[in-house]
Nucleic acid binder design. Sequence first.
DNA 1: TCCATATTGTTATCTTATAACATATCACTT
DNA 2: AAGTGATATGTTATAAGATAACAATATGGA
Lengths: 168, 168
Amino acid sequence: MPVQPATNIFEKHNHRRCLKGGMDEARALCQTQGLRLTPVRARVLEILLESHKALGAYDILAILDMDGMGRQPPVVYRALEFLVQSGLVHRLEKLNAFAACCHQGSAEGRGHEPMFLICTQCRQVAETSLKEVEGSIEKCAAALGFEVQSRVVELIGRCPACQGGAGL
Amino acid sequence: MPVQPATNIFEKHNHRRCLKGGMDEARALCQTQGLRLTPVRARVLEILLESHKALGAYDILAILDMDGMGRQPPVVYRALEFLVQSGLVHRLEKLNAFAACCHQGSAEGRGHEPMFLICTQCRQVAETSLKEVEGSIEKCAAALGFEVQSRVVELIGRCPACQGGAGL
DNA sequence: TCCATATTGTTATCTTATAACATATCACTT
DNA sequence: AAGTGATATGTTATAAGATAACAATATGGA
């Protein structure tokens, strides 16, 4: 699997590669980890990969319903739980929403804990490494004797494309 | 108003001072800003100041109800909105819950954007400055051309007191 | 084929949050 | 003191997000 630099999704990019690459990666991951990428799970991932936007569980469910793949909340929540646990999808706490992981094949692969940059206007979500921030975070935590298990870092603002127009 | 160092709430401390100091500060703030600390607002703040724990809106509402101060969700949500906007209370995105700001009189006063340390076991929430982390955060954002409007930084883990016992 | 396990279908319910509108209170002017 | 506009509260209803529980089915290995 070729290792490529992380895509800056705010720049013009070959989005087909995000979609295809994401699906290929998911299949490969499930293969090696003995996980099952069932039709519903694959479709949910695909829906999320189709844009870099954060989607709510019920938005996804509506699409599944149109596809005839289920209309009850547990259908989508179970698929999302699987995808989040495998690192293929991330949960955005600030939005109560989900976005596909777009770091396939990059140096910061799955299992990483990213920082998110969330555009309030277009809802696009970029993902970047927490590595550079992590040191100072751990230092603060250590100073208080706190044992860090996981981190939520989400920046709310405007992406380059949305900065021109009217403010939100 | 005396400026005192920020309290480490994970250490033994004079909690009465947190409560009294918090209320005094709130009254002073509202005085100078022309805001109204009405009975419901004051009571919600007091409920949150009584511990350093994160409480859900409906937890708070149940207490208000026992006090005979209202039983409908908008009562508590409106009070919380006011308190969050004035910087007296913070919202914890990861928990969909709220905690009183405990930086009264400290150098990093109100209006700051803190980092939160949330204990999964006892639900206590400590607050510390984002100052030291902010630089590296802004750098990442700038590299992507992203305009940051606000930040969510929440560390999930175990506070010193909860580290001894069984893991969660 | 049979079994244990993992997955999906379905119903019901729970938690969190807000819209909308009526009523009351406050703070200021006359 | 009465009027007035803005702010705050009371109340009903409902939206939005999430999960518990159990029945039915599919899957992969013995």
